[in-house]
Design a protein around this nucleic acid. Structure first.
Lengths: 163, 163
DNA sequence: TATTGTTATACTCTATAACTATA
DNA sequence: TATAGTTATAGAGTATAACAATA
C-alpha cells in the first residue's frame, strides 16, 4: 500500500511521511466512519457550515474535482446533513446548506478529528511536538508547498453514439 | 487529491502529513521518472541488489501485494534491469537477479532519492530537522505504527465460464 | 464565449479468486 | 494441505468529456 521501504538504516523521509500519514488516515477514516462520515464529507460539512459556500468553492477548499464534489454532496444530502439550494446571486450555482442535524454531526465529527490528532501528538514529548509541528508547517508552506505535475497519461475521448 | 483542509487555524496534523507526503511523492516520482523508474521499481531494485531475494520476500519488504509485485518485476525485466531466475532451493520461487545495467541504475536512483530527501530536509534549520526526524520516527514506530483495518467491502467470486 | 453543476464513462490502481507447479 | 507465482478481473477512486442552464 505504501510504496517505499528504506534500503538503508538512514532515515527515509518518504517512508516516514507515507507511513505516518497513511496510518493516521486509516485512524481518521475509522473514527469518522463511526458516525457515518468520510473525511471528505467532514471537510465539506465543516466548511459549508462556517460560511455560505457553493459547490465550486467547497471543491476548491478541499482540493477536490467538481465531479468528486457531486458525489460527496450527494452523500451528505442522502444522509440528511446538507441540502443544495439555488444561489440567488448566480442561478447556475448551488449553495450547500447544512441542516440542523448536519450542524450537530459537524460538531461531533470535529471533536473526533481533534481527538485523533491530539492522541497522535500526545505520543510525543511536549517540546518535540512543538518543533515537529513547526517543521511540518514550514515544509508544507515552503519547499513542499506545491506538487510537481507528473507527465499525465493520455485519455481518449468518449465514444459517441453509445448507450 | 489530498482530502482534508483545516477548518481552523490550529495545526491540522492530517492536512500537514497528507500534504507534505503527497508533494514529496510527486517530487520523488518526477525524479525517478527521469530515469524511467517508478518508486516501486526503485524499491524492488535496491532490495534485490542488496541480497538474493525472491518475489515474495521483496513483496513483503515493499508492503506490496504479490500481484502488484508481478507487474513491477515485469517492468524491471522489460527495462532490462532485472531477471527472474528459478531458485535452486525452491523450484516454485523466483529469485530477482539485478542485471549489470540494473545495478548502475539502482546506484543512480538511490542518489536521486537521497537528493530529493536532502533537498527537502535542507529547507529546515539544522536542530529543527533533527527533532522533526526523531518525532516522525517515534510516531511511525509507536502510535502510528499499524494501520487500523477499516471495514472492507465485499468482493464477489469471479464468474466461471467467461472468456 | 466561459462557467456551474451534472451525467456518463474511461482509466489507474490495487486486491481477490482461481489456477499451475511445486513443497 | 499449503505456498510461489501467474492470470483474469472485480471494485474503488478519480478524472475527462460532453452537456444543459446560465453568465
Amino acid at each position: 500500500m505504501t510504496a517505499m521501504t528504506p534500503p538503508r538504516t538512514e532515515p527515509d523521509l518518504s517512508f516516514l511521511l507515507d507511513h505516518t500519514s497513511h496510518v493516521l488516515r486509516t485512524r481518521m477514516a475509522a473514527a469518522l466512519g463511526e458516525i457515518g462520515l468520510t473525511p471528505r464529507m467532514h471537510c465539506v460539512l465543516v466548511h459549508a457550515l462556517a460560511q455560505e459556500r457553493t459547490q465550486a468553492q467547497l471543491a476548491e477548499i478541499g482540493d477536490m474535482d467538481k465531479t468528486t464534489m457531486v458525489v460527496t454532496v450527494d452523500a451528505l444530502e442522502q444522509a440528511g446533513l446538507a441540502e443544495r439550494r439555488p444561489s440567488t446571486a448566480d442561478r447556475r450555482a448551488r449553495i450547500i446548506a447544512v441542516t440542523e442535524q448536519g450542524a450537530e454531526v459537524a460538531a461531533r465529527s470535529q471533536r473526533l478529528v481533534d481527538g485523533v490528532h491530539e492522541e497522535a501528538l500526545g505520543a510525543l514529548p511536549a517540546e518535540e511536538r512543538e518543533t515537529f509541528l513547526r517543521a511540518l508547517d514550514r515544509l508544507s508552506r515552503g519547499h513542499l508547498a506545491t506538487p510537481v505535475d507528473s507527465p499525465r497519461p493520455v485519455r481518449r475521448a468518449r465514444q459517441r453514439g453509445k448507450q
